[in-house]
Nucleic acid binder design. Structure first.
Lengths: 196, 196
DNA sequence: CAAAACTTAAACCAATTAGTCTAGGTTGTA
DNA sequence: TACAACCTAGACTAATTGGTTTAAGTTTTG
């Protein structure tokens, strides 16, 4: 057994704080100084624990994605009708991204933030989008088997539409000061699903 | 009349080159060095002509938006059916954003790049989104009066859906290496319009 | 108690940033 | 021809960046 005390700060908590800064500012614009201030730890501890800025970011992005994907999956797999769960999810997104000062989705922000040819980050983002698409796919399929959606429609196509529409809403919402656009988008998206 | 030669370089051409760099890299990551190299002018000329980096960026963004908006408007107002023009526009976007190495829409990239509370840039982006929404609105209205779309549907809602869906497709396309997602999105969007 | 594991604060480094300024060259016109 | 307008190249500044290292202090445990 090793001697001495264990880590005093909670790496996961500090990582969460770092995530908030990256989410708000983006990778480049998030300075070490601001990151450390929010994380509440010293420079040394950060480098000892997380390696460097890029790997800190990748860990923060991973935590964001897992938290977000789990939350969405839970909302979609809640008891009751699958279609209703999709509607409720979209409504909650409408509210979130319609708020002034909303920061959108961290995946989307990073998708814009990084050079498209960045071989380090692009595959990570692509994989998260795939997982998100698959979550939508499952929910739509379930709504179909429950008889709530047209069984002839392609759940794969619908899931992809849902993916891009919500990402677009989250992105545009960053500069909006009213809920009108998200309202329209969610309304039309739900109609599109039902009429598919 | 003033003496001496007029400007040797074309400010609009140089601005276009700057725009390309900003588009590819984003505001922060676009260094003066890279900008000047692409613009093909000296540091001094840039500061004399454009002021500083931020105003260079704002001018580049304005040029991008005007070029882009005009192009979209032209495609939508082309001769023939309004609905068909919308379809053709979406198909061209599908192709563009499905290409590996696609850089998305500069408006979207900047929307993610800047701090949401940036009072300088947020209103500019918001205004561009409004203009884009209005262009879609006109096209949809025309398709309705031409009897190609359900006249009961709200062209405002549909225009907003189109806005967010295309922005999302452009954004996600930055990390994609195949056309499958844009294909699905465009297919579903056209269906949604027709069934609205 | 003493050593190990952990912590912070701050000094430090090399590189890069946006922006300014100067010196010298070219070009066109009064 | 002489001067004004424009140009480039590059030196320079002041600040900031990510990252490293050092020194000193704290806590736990063998």
């Amino acid at each position: 057994m090793s001697r001495g005390p264990n880590k005093k700060f909670e790496p996961e908590v500090a990582l969460g704080k770092a995530m908030e800064v990256f989410w708000l500012r983006g990778y480049e614009a998030a300075s070490l100084t601001e990151l450390l201030q929010n994380m509440g730890i010293s420079r040394k501890s950060m480098y000892d624990t997380f390696g460097n800025k890029q790997s800190l970011f990748l860990k923060a992005l991973e935590q964001y994605a897992q938290t977000r994907l789990r939350s969405i999956r839970e909302q979609l797999l809640a008891s009751g009708s699958a279609l209703n769960n999709i509607e409720q999810l979209l409504k909650s997104m409408q509210k979130t991204h319609g708020k002034p000062g909303s920061t959108g989705c961290m995946l989307g922000t990073c998708t814009a933030d990084f050079n498209t040819s960045d071989v380090e980050i692009a595959p990570v983002l692509r994989s998260y989008y795939n997982r998100l698409e698959n979550i939508y796919y499952e929910a739509i399929s379930q709504a179909q088997t429950e008889g709530e959606l047209n069984p002839q429609a392609s759940p794969r196509d619908l899931a992809r539409m849902l993916l891009c529409t919500t990402q677009g809403m989250a992105l545009v919402g960053r500069v909006l000061d009213s809920e009108t656009i998200p309202q329209s988008v969610v309304k039309m998206t739900i109609e599109a699903l039902k009429k598919s």
